[in-house]
């Protein structure tokens, strides 16, 4: 009995420690992350290696495109002002690059959830002919030929061997650190700030009309939903159905977080809406298209309500996240390379 109690305490402590260490901590009031850190324990050296890889165009066939090309920090790690993201040789993809933040809580990745684990995510853009048009085998070969990477892998893993697994796990570690939880909304929830009257009205409206899909505190329920957008016949993108092959998943896409929405425009999986106002107009006048979420009805927002709602949505902007130098281009790593 004593032993069971002891085991219980140890397990509890492990869980608690899990929520917070020097490299990763769960913001107050947030659920436990989905990512299994025990399989990829965070370390400063691995995070910095992942950060270097994230910003290095060496991952692409002709060394022109890095992850940051389509995931720029100042726009919450999405593609500045592009409806459909463009990659190598200016080739255009079929979707809007998703904003990257709070990825430890996400179970599936990509708009259709085709990628099942954060570790596996980077494989997709690296291999996609429209994005980086490269192979993992060749990337590993190229990295091993540099003077920069073998020492970074040694610092991270104890020896300089570069493998696909090590590369992907280091990239995960950097991406896991991209936590946005320092917005005005968060300060209000911590009782360190107060909403204006307009923001407060918007928040109330948000809670009744939007939060069943954009659930607090992460502002997504991590489900796939059809939000009533008509099919773009030039793209013929049926979303989740292409993964599950189930007709009931037709036109369903992952519910994106609303955090930093002020900067993550254009909106929707294909970037069809440039302005927040267009998005609110869409939800206001929604029409049936088959498999839409049963949570969805035309919201008939008045213009005052739209203003209030927008005021609230802007409280989700997290400037500390957007300008955190820990996430930015690691000049100090690449400076040594320039001398070679």
């Amino acid at each position: 009995m004593k032993r069971i109690l002891l085991l219980g305490i140890v397990a509890f402590l492990a869980l608690v420690a899990f929520r917070s260490d020097e490299n990763f901590s769960v913001p107050t009031g947030w659920p436990n992350p989905h990512y299994d850190f025990s399989k990829n324990p965070p370390s400063r050296a691995k995070i910095e290696l992942g950060r270097a890889l994230f910003y290095d165009p060496i991952l692409s066939r002709n060394s022109t495109i890095s992850c940051a090309s389509c995931h720029s920090q100042y726009t919450a790690f999405t593609h500045v002002d592009h409806a459909l993201s463009h990659g190598i040789d200016d080739r255009i993809g079929t979707r809007n690059s998703p904003a990257l933040m709070n990825l430890a809580w996400s179970k599936d990745f990509m708009w259709d959830g085709a990628v099942n684990h954060l570790d596996m995510q980077a494989l997709a853009p690296i291999s996609n002919p429209q994005e980086m048009d490269e192979t993992m085998t060749h990337v590993v070969h190229k990295l091993s030929q540099t003077s920069l990477y073998p020492p970074l892998f040694r610092a991270a893993y104890g020896d300089s061997t570069i493998t696909g697994e090590r590369l992907l796990k280091a990239m995960s570690q950097f991406m896991l650190t991209l936590i946005s939880a320092r917005s005005k909304y968060d300060s209000v929830m911590q009782r360190e700030a107060e909403f204006t009257l307009q923001e407060q009205n918007g928040y109330r409206l948000f809670q009744t009309k939007c939060s069943s899909c954009h659930t607090e505190p992460l502002f997504t329920n991590y489900q796939f939903e059809n939000n009533g957008l008509p099919l773009d016949t030039t793209l013929m993108d049926y979303g989740r159905m292409s993964v599950t092959k189930q007709a009931s998943d037709s036109l369903k896409f992952k519910v994106p977080t609303l955090r930093n929405i002020e900067f993550s425009y254009p909106y929707m999986h294909d970037g069809r809406f440039k302005r927040l106002r267009d998005v609110l107009m869409h939800y206001s006048t929604i029409r049936q298209n088959g498999t839409e979420s049963n949570k969805l009805q035309p919201m008939n927002f008045t213009s005052n309500e739209m203003v209030d709602l927008t005021a609230f949505l802007l409280t989700l902007t997290d400037r500390k996240f957007l300008f955190d130098t820990a996430y930015s281009y690691p000049k100090y790593i690449f400076a040594t390379q320039a001398k070679d």
């Binding site: 399989k39 570790d119 596996m120 996609n128 696909g164 995960s172």
Partner: peptide, 17 residues
């Protein structure tokens, strides 16, 4: 997630998209 050895992504036995 990612594994090494015979499961390593460089083995060319993983779908990417």
């Amino acid at each position: 997630g990612a594994f090494g050895g015979d499961l390593d992504p460089t083995r060319g036995m993983l779908w990417t998209w």
